[in-house]
């Protein structure tokens, strides 16, 4: 069973995705803030991180950079964000993460999750 972590300060949206993914058989956990992300990853192993770039009091891109330089770079990342500028998308692509812009179709997102889980991880990539 794949384990998925959702990091989004829009708790309504995060909980909706979490409930739908749980129904599909994934083990899902929701986080509202990114400060304790690394601590959580040290304690538990996850296969996919679904995160927003616009987090309160924290820049998602900085968090992504921290993550890519950490021992948890094996984690596959899917960005689902309102921040949709070309520059942001390019930077997300640099970290080998996938990008979906909000507003997003829930059913489309649920269909794509298994595909994102199968994608090659960061492991072995020089950053």
């Amino acid at each position: 069973m794949a384990r998925i972590l959702i990091l989004d300060d829009n708790i309504y949206f995060a909980r909706l995705i979490a409930s739908q993914l749980t129904r599909l058989g994934y083990a899902v956990r929701v986080m509202e803030a990114g400060e304790e992300l690394l601590d959580l990853l040290r304690a538990e192993r996850y296969d996919l991180l679904i995160m927003e770039l616009l987090l309160q009091g924290q820049d998602g891109l900085t968090l992504l950079q921290t993550l890519s330089c950490s021992p948890f770079s094996y984690l596959r990342v899917l960005i689902v964000s309102h921040r949709t500028s070309y520059v942001d998308q390019q930077r997300v692509a640099e970290y080998d993460a996938d990008f979906l812009s909000k507003p997003v179709d829930l059913y489309e997102l649920l269909e794509k999750v298994p595909m994102f889980l199968k994608r090659k991880s960061w492991e072995g990539r020089s950053l």
Binding site: K102, V104, D105, L106, Y107
Partner: peptide, 10 residues
């Protein structure tokens, strides 16, 4: 908040 985040069928 849902309408701001979702599009399409949902």
């Amino acid at each position: 908040p849902y309408l701001e985040c979702l599009k399409g069928e949902s």
